[in-house]
């Protein structure tokens, strides 16, 4: 019958029209006076008494609070987390990168907790302007020195600024994603919940070899 289908369709539309919108406002959302007071840590009356301008703005829906969207812990973020103490400079990541955007320069005379004496890293540049975040470099790292990061709001105005030099990697916030790092999931580490992880001992798949083993390796190598 003509028209019955249309009524059925209108029923669905009405049902959805009465629901709350599922849109997530990003990066901030507008709130009213109550939300503004909550964000300022005051009661509604207190806000109106102490900050009348803010309260007026909120009443005119000109006040916004930032929105954080939690990602999953395997999220492959827009930067890398690198533990220099774990890195031997083997350049597996550079070889495994499909685009060849990792540049590594090493010199003898470094130290790492995996192999003892090894190469010192002079240059470890990642051009994230060309990176496609496939995570194959992280998968290739045999020493768990390189991890995907968990940040994503890192746009820049210049292309050159997208290259992460080694000094920036050394000082960067270390909030590793658990992409291809099952040890994080075993101990229930979530970068978005637990924050940075600076202890490089906790990020490895393997136990750190003791000093005796390292010495023995040093002897065997020669």
């Amino acid at each position: 019958m003509i028209g019955l289908g249309l009524l059925k369709a209108m029923k669905v539309t009405l049902k959805n029209a009465l629901k709350a919108p599922f849109t997530i406002q990003y990066p901030d959302r507008k709130v009213g006076i109550i939300g503004a007071a909550k964000n300022e840590g005051k009661s509604t009356v207190g806000l109106m008494a102490t900050q009348p301008v803010t309260a007026a703005k909120a009443a005119l829906s000109m006040y916004s609070v930032p929105v954080n969207i939690p990602q999953n812990r395997r999220f492959r973020g827009n930067e890398f987390t690198w533990y220099e103490d774990r890195c031997t400079g083997c350049a597996s990541c550079a070889k495994y990168c499909p685009l060849g955007i990792i540049e590594i320069v090493t010199s003898p005379g470094g130290f790492d907790v995996q192999e003892g004496e090894s190469y010192a890293i002079d240059k470890f540049d990642i051009d994230i302007g060309r990176c496609m975040f496939c995570g194959l470099c992280v998968e290739a790292c045999p020493y768990d020195a390189l991890h995907m990061g968990s940040q994503f709001e890192r746009s820049k105005y210049e292309r050159d600024a997208l290259v992460i030099p080694v000094d920036e990697l050394r000082q960067a916030l270390r909030q590793p994603s658990s992409w291809f790092r099952p040890q994080f999931e075993e101990r229930d580490y979530d970068p978005f919940r637990d924050g940075p992880e600076d202890d490089h001992y906790k990020t490895g798949r393997h136990e750190m070899p003791d000093q005796e083993t390292l010495d023995q390796r040093w002897v065997e190598d020669r």
Partner: peptide
């Protein structure tokens, strides 16, 4: 099912 109700029996879509 909602999608079905909305579109499959809809005379305009027909």
């Amino acid at each position: 099912d909602d999608l079905d109700d909305l579109l499959t029996d809809n005379d305009i879509i027909f």
